[in-house]
Simulated assay, not measured.
Amino acid sequence: MQNNITCQHISTTSRVRGEQKNQRPVVIWLTGLSGSGKSSLADALEQRLISKGYHTYLLDGDNVRMGLCKDLGFGDQDREENIRRVAEVANLFLDAGLIVITSFISPFHRDRALARSVIGDDSFIEVYLDTPLSECERRDPKGLYSKARQGLIKNFTGIDSPYEAPTSPQIRIDTLNHSIEGGVDIVIDYFERWNAQ
């Protein structure tokens, strides 16, 4: 079946669509443990970018799991497929000229590397929300760590499934020492310097 598919040339590029919106398209990929603050930071970041006149789209892990990826479980292969789909969707929004914010645990090096390869190194900003497991468990906003500790949730990142922290993210936010707004300031500062290049 794949042999009968040919890539159709489209004249309008991501750059052209971005110029129409007066912005440089990019994917800002937030990664970190459950409870590290990814969704909160992503939401606040999008609000800040919109207030500055940027055109954005936010892809959040739970929301995507309710639709596009509702057929997937949480084993390693399904997690890999989840991130592959998200990377492809993010790349489509990037092609539309948008600033895309993604909020996914994305626990494995290989999956984040795959996302970067799909999107392109020049259009991928990796943001690591560095929060100790003990702090994430203390916060436990959805009660998931408690369930995982009781054996009610299997393959839970940080408990019985590993989280491979990024070794060289473009941005690292220590969430013990930065508020959500402080984290947004760090990302905005990096983004605006990147955008001006």
Rank of each mutant, 00 (worst) to 15 (best):
L41P: 10
E181K: 10
K21D: 02
G183D: 00
E135H: 12
S36W: 07
R138E: 13
V16M: 14
A148E: 09
E192D: 11
D60G: 04
P132Q: 03
A96R: 02
G158A: 11
K38N: 10
T131W: 11
E164M: 07
N3C: 08
N91C: 13
D189Y: 05
Q2T: 14
G183N: 00
H109W: 15
L58T: 14
G73Y: 01
S106N: 09
M66I: 01
T102P: 03
L144W: 02
L49Q: 04
D60T: 01
D121N: 14
D95A: 12
E81K: 15
D140Y: 07
I5Y: 14
E137D: 10
A165K: 14
K21M: 14
D185S: 10
G97W: 01
P141H: 06
L58V: 08
D71W: 06
V187E: 08
C7M: 13
N63V: 08
L144F: 13
A196I: 06
R138H: 12
V27L: 11
P141V: 07
V100H: 01
R85C: 11
T6W: 07
V64F: 00
P162R: 07
R48S: 14
K147I: 05
I105D: 00
S134P: 04
G182P: 07
R110I: 13
I173T: 06
P141M: 09
D174L: 12
L41H: 05
I159C: 07
E80M: 10
E135D: 14
G143Q: 02
R15V: 15
L114T: 10
F156D: 11
V89A: 09
R79I: 00
D76F: 12
R116S: 05
Q8S: 12
T13V: 11
S103W: 01
P25N: 01
F191K: 03
G182W: 03
L72R: 12
F124R: 01
L30A: 04
A90Y: 03
W29C: 05
A165H: 07
V86C: 05
E80P: 00
S40E: 15
E46V: 15
S51Y: 03
T12C: 11
I171L: 11
W29V: 06
T31Q: 04
I105N: 06
I105P: 01
